[in-house]
Nucleic acid binder design. Structure first.
Length: 432
DNA sequence: TCTGGGGTCCTAGGACCC
DNA sequence: TCTGGGGTCCTAGGACCC
């Protein structure tokens, strides 16, 4: 058996944890640049506010109903996520952190030790709430896909009190019949459309198809696996996350600018900043990158025909996590795709071909003094920034223009709350 | 005026190799 | 006239996820 634990409206719940007066009110959290709605309270959903909708389009509705708005505060959400995951990691031996607000628990063979799983899950749910103020729902089933499906039902039906256990074949059939096919994990817009055209509208109907059919219709082995999992045969095991952290296969830092930019120096400043941030993430997970991609984009919503994005992919001479090295390549890459006179809205840096850091040095016959000094410099840089605040020490390329206090590319974050749990200055103050 | 960011996996097709 | 049968690696593009 697998359990899927999912935090309800996670970002909104994090804001509510520090502002209990928001309970029962419509609340939304906006994406970077205060662009789109990315988390909504139940009350906000009831008003018809949709996931991913641009804020400017729903502004009248939001104002009319006095919906409370928040800019995203990832320092807070990341820390709160860590607290939830840390607790869940302590109740079972194997946990896979699937995203910032979801994790799978491996419950195989656990029932004799834990007792009835539904009761256990209710206890975990209660304890997460008590420790973090974050509400979660738990779905339990024989496969990951069915656990996702169970989780959705736990969220929808108040009588389940946040836990849904598909422990019998009858319950599994009932759950499949309840679920629209587009709500199955792995069925997105394209596939849903295709399935409807063939008269398949529920998860039960999809589960009734053959593996060969699924392979042909739903993208090969992925589709075959999906249908088998709906039928109750596990095809995906747990990929345990080491000590509660995730190790990525690619690392990106990309942003839409707060305003359109057309000066090379401004865009270079942004690209340099993104490269520095990506390099920090890279070192944090102990990796080195072999491939660097830089892209710049124009307005993708305007009347101009695509392509709106130009990118360049560089294979680096050797795997590296050195900011200086990556900045040098990023600048060269940007020069190659830069069009004078164009107006840019967004840029990004992506690191791929990740390997364990240090491996590339084993190839050298003699210890490379310069490489060692550089590695030490990067480690010290990270230490200083960790202790005194992100960006306290940075490279000149990523520095602000003279006399500026905010970067020209910086976005809006009009409704940002304090980083209550990760910054001393932002510590919550309670007056008696 | 205003439209997010960060990931994963898979397939097909071309280049190249023996 | 007739033109094999594997492999591997790489890239681009598609689809999906939260």
């Amino acid at each position: 058996m697998y359990a899927l634990v999912d935090c309800n409206n996670f970002y909104v719940s994090c804001e509510r944890a520090f502002q209990p007066q928001l309970e029962g009110k419509p609340v939304v959290v906006l994406s970077n640049n205060d662009g789109c709605l990315i988390s909504r309270s139940a009350e906000a959903k009831a008003l018809g506010l949709k996931m991913g909708e641009p804020y400017f389009q729903v502004k009248p509705l939001v104002q009319q109903h006095a919906v409370r708005m928040f800019s995203s505060n990832y320092a807070l959400y990341g820390d709160m996520s860590g607290r939830v995951m840390h607790y869940l990691s302590s109740v079972v031996p194997e946990v896979e952190i699937y995203s910032i607000d979801e994790c799978f628990l491996d419950l195989h063979g656990m029932e004799p030790y834990l007792g009835p799983l539904a009761e256990q899950a209710a206890g975990w749910r209660h304890e997460v709430r008590r420790r973090t103020h974050i509400p979660v729902c738990i779905g339990i089933a024989p496969t990951k896909t069915l656990a996702k499906l169970a989780n959705r039902l736990a969220k929808k039906s108040p009588t389940m009190e946040g836990v849904c256990y598909l422990d019998t074949d009858g319950r599994r059939q009932w759950a499949l019949a309840q679920t629209p096919v587009e709500d199955v994990w792995g069925i997105g817009g394209q596939y849903a459309h295709k399935l409807y055209a063939q008269g398949i509208r529920t998860a039960a109907q999809l589960a009734g198809q053959s593996e060969a059919w699924a392979r042909k219709q739903l993208g090969g082995v992925v589709g075959a696996r999906l249908v088998r999992e709906l039928q109750g045969t596990p095809c995906q095991g747990l990929q345990p996350s080491e000590d509660g952290t995730l190790s990525r296969k690619s690392i990106a830092c990309t942003r839409t600018f707060g305003q359109p930019l057309s000066a090379f120096a401004d865009v270079l400043g942004a690209v340099a900043h993104f490269a520095s941030k990506a390099a920090e993430k890279l070192r944090r997970q102990g990796s080195a990158a072999n491939v660097l991609t830089v892209f710049i984009s124009k307005n993708r919503f305007g009347t101009e025909p695509p392509p709106h994005t130009r990118s360049v992919v560089l294979t680096l001479p050797t795997g590296t996590s050195d900011t200086i090295e990556l900045l040098r390549h990023a600048r060269a890459a940007l020069k190659r795709i830069w069009e004078p006179g164009a107006v840019y809205r967004k840029a990004g840096v992506v690191l791929d071909g990740l390997e364990t850091a240090g491996q590339q040095q084993l190839l050298l016959f003699e210890p490379n003094e310069q490489a060692e000094r550089r590695a030490k410099l990067m480690a010290d840089l990270d230490k200083v920034n960790q202790r005194f605040g992100a960006g306290k020490v940075k490279f000149a390329t990523a520095q602000l223009p003279k006399g500026e206090y905010t970067a020209p590319w910086a976005g809006q974050h009009q409704w940002q709350t304090p980083a209550y749990t990760t910054c001393w200055e932002d510590l919550l103050c309670i007056r008696a």
